[in-house]
Amino acid sequence: MSVSFEITAQPRSDTGKGASRRLRRTGMVPGIIYGGHQEPSMISLAHNELILHLDHEAFYSHILNLKVGDATEQVVLKDLQRHPAKPFIMHIDFQRISAGEKIRMQVPLHFTNQESAPGTKAGGQASHMLSDVEITCLPKDLPEFIEVDMGEMNVGDAIHLSELKLPAGVELPSSEHEDTIVVNIHSGHTATDEDETEEGAAE
């Protein structure tokens, strides 16, 4: 992996909505660490520091080093609650990882060669139906993203989940949605265009 993330948190004992509100007023974000065959741990993190990390796409699909007191644990981000109207993080969940146990994660999709695809050059338009995909893998195999190569796509072509080229050790957790379309290229000519053309001819 090309980058690493170091996060510092503080243990907390106060729980409940009132305690969380008091924390947020001091610029801290309440959170929790769970999993790894251990009891959950309540933590708090500096909001400003967290915002800087969240600006990096890789933060959402990366192994993170979380320091709480004198101990450092390896975790992944599992849930993030944002304020519905303000740019504030309300709560954050981390999951501990174990080297020999698979994890389930949402990983972003990176679409490549879209502009050079035959369908795009012919005037077609690409529609990205998914922006990320759920995968399972061991922590060591966790990719930062999944590449979707559009270089051979023509107008009318689509790439389905089952056609994604996954890195070694990475799997889709279920084949139930394998026919879900990830991206397609369709004609750029719309019904509105046709109507305007017909109206112009009639005039």
Rank of each mutant, 00 (worst) to 15 (best):
E39P: 00
F5N: 03
I51K: 11
Q38H: 02
T15E: 12
K67D: 01
R22D: 11
V3F: 14
H56T: 15
M42D: 14
P30W: 07
S162W: 01
E178L: 06
L54M: 13
H189Q: 14
A9S: 09
M28Q: 15
Q74A: 04
F145M: 08
M129C: 02
S61A: 01
M105G: 03
E176S: 04
M105C: 09
Q81V: 14
I7E: 02
V29I: 14
A58G: 04
H37W: 10
E152G: 07
G156N: 11
A85F: 15
L164F: 05
A46C: 15
K102Q: 04
S116A: 02
E101Y: 13
R21P: 06
Q114K: 12
E178D: 11
F88I: 08
Q125F: 12
D14T: 00
M1W: 09
T136Y: 11
Y60R: 10
I33Q: 04
G156H: 14
L77A: 07
L109Q: 03
Q106E: 09
H189L: 15
R25M: 03
H189P: 00
Q106H: 10
I103Q: 05
D157Y: 03
L138A: 02
F59C: 11
I181V: 08
D195V: 14
V148G: 02
H37P: 05
S41P: 09
H189R: 15
V183I: 01
E178T: 12
G124L: 09
I89K: 06
P30Q: 03
T120P: 00
P84Q: 06
G119S: 04
L161V: 15
Y34T: 05
I89A: 06
S2T: 02
D157K: 06
S13W: 04
A117W: 15
I103W: 13
E203Y: 14
T120Q: 01
F59T: 07
H83T: 00
L52M: 13
